[in-house]
């Protein structure tokens, strides 16, 4: 019975992947699990793709939106994870955007909570979503003047050393070195 369910999920997933592949030219398809797949889509077609998945393919539940900074390639990866509660399937849509011109089309009309994710990404990564509600308002930080802190080129250690007053007599150890020295003699 379990095997039958497993194969039916795989079949449903392949038909969904075939459908979106024929319409949106998705690439880099990675099947992480039977019920979880990652795909990559062009920036211009991403919102159309997730709209299609929501409207026509039953992906009603929006799991999350976040970014990964690939500073070496000069790109941000945006990941939208969508869930189909009926078929119990997850498809994550990745799209790469330029770090220099970090803007993306807003998707706040599809799910209400997306506006919050976009507001956070604007603040933490400096990715703009023009037209997204309250996108320019502070979310977590207040009075922040430095570069967006979740970018890879923002160094938390340097920031802490420059910002906070060191307590006299306090020793600092590099955690990896400390563990090597004391725990694995």
């Amino acid at each position: 019975m379990e095997k039958k369910n497993k194969s039916s999920i795989v079949n449903i997933k392949s038909s969904i992947i075939d459908d979106i592949k024929s319409r949106f030219e998705i690439t880099d398809i990675v099947h992480r699990r039977d019920n979880m797949t990652f795909v990559t889509c062009e920036k211009q077609k991403t919102i159309a793709l997730i709209t299609h998945m929501k409207t026509n393919l039953g992906f009603k539940h929006f799991v999350l939106l976040t970014a990964v900074d690939w500073i070496e390639d000069g790109k941000f990866q945006l990941t939208y994870i969508l869930n189909n509660p009926k078929q119990k399937l997850d498809i994550a849509v990745r799209t790469m955007i330029s770090r220099e011109e970090a803007t993306m089309e807003t998707a706040h009309k599809l799910w209400k909570q997306i506006a919050t994710y976009q507001r956070e990404l604007k603040e933490m990564f400096g990715i703009d979503f023009p037209g997204s509600p309250r996108v320019d308002e502070n979310f977590i930080l207040e009075g922040w003047n430095d570069i967006p802190p979740y970018r890879r080129d923002f160094d938390t250690k340097v920031y802490a050393e420059e910002t906070f007053f060191p307590r006299p007599g306090r020793k600092t150890n590099d955690p990896a070195e400390y563990m090597k020295k004391n725990l694995h003699k």
């Binding site: 502070n138 977590i140 979740y150 938390t156």
Partner: peptide, 10 residues
Amino acid sequence: VGYLHRGFEK
């Protein structure tokens, strides 16, 4: 929010 932000993900 933001009163307890410690940047754990970073």
